[in-house]
Design a protein around this nucleic acid. Sequence first.
DNA 1: AACACGGGGTA
DNA 2: TACCCAGTGTT
Length: 366
Amino acid sequence: MADTIVRRLVTNRLLEWYRQNKRDLPWRNARDPYCIWISEIMLQQTQVVTVIPYYLRFITAFPNLHALADASLDNVLAVWRGLGYYSRARAVHRAAQLICEQYHGEIPPGYKELRALPGIGDYTAGAVLSIAFGQDFPAIDANARRVLCRLFDYAADPHLPEGKKAIADYALALLPPGQAGEFNQAMMELGAIICTAKIPRCASCPLAGDCIANRRGVQEERPLAVRRKSLPIRHFVSVVVKESSRILLVRRVPRGLLGGLWELPGGELLAGEDFATGIARIFLKDLNTAATIGAACGSLRHTYTHFTAAVTIYCCTIKGQPLPQQQWDSALWCLPNELDKYGLTGVTVKALAQVGYSLPNDSPSF
DNA sequence: AACACGGGGTA
DNA sequence: TACCCAGTGTT
């Protein structure tokens, strides 16, 4: 494997397999670095099949970098709604504005410049440089990492600093000069289709004969599994306040969990706190208004990355106009048929459906 | 180094 | 339920 000729044979087999088996994806063979960049941001921690409709909708809404830079964050988040990791949408919006200011609207074709933009880390910089600009940079995502761990039977934790270096060295050793874009995509495609996390299809793998883990029969033990903690359950209340057929929506401050998204007012209950007390506390502190609890009108569960939210829905009335502060930076009274104009949180979409307000076109498939 | 950060899919 | 996913930014 350390031999240049052997490496060449391996990459040739990989690239030949890729040419014959690659999926037809909307961003593939795109000339425009902007399209490559958007697709790579969306593909962070998100599977290809999930990204496709969001990508098409986003490119339609913001066809080029200037369109994105000129849009409002509210508009960008409304298009991103449902894809998750909303800091990506905030970062991509901010980066578009920075590229307009600093690089005359052209995505800079340099590692240092890309890496300095918000939302672009090592993986995305390498992906854009190799795929959009043809430069010899590796792009190591979870797929490529798994393929390399198996190919070289790397037995330690690849997320540790030594592991990251080892995996990067493997990738650099294999990377064929002048074909980094195809090579990186081929590694990811192999990981997504053949060298899957569970039950890899080694019988169909073009690199099975080169794979040390396969030879040793330990492919399913690579990469080394890291145990996760079970998710805690946290209790929340979500409140429907109506005023002459309009519904009160509030906007979360643009940072942290679901930053910049709109939601029904509410929040987490303190330990041992009952619903009426919690609602009164939240409305007084975050909306500067007195709330009176009404009927309970539903409940739901929603799982985030690191906790499960158990949400109870109440109808309430308030005294006077709400003044957003603390966790919210804006408030408005929304007509039911205009709900889809706002980037709503998943919990709010679910809660509204339970009280009879289903969103049109909630699926990004249009 | 560990944690925060969504949502959808699969077994 | 548990795990996985074309990772990045913060602490």
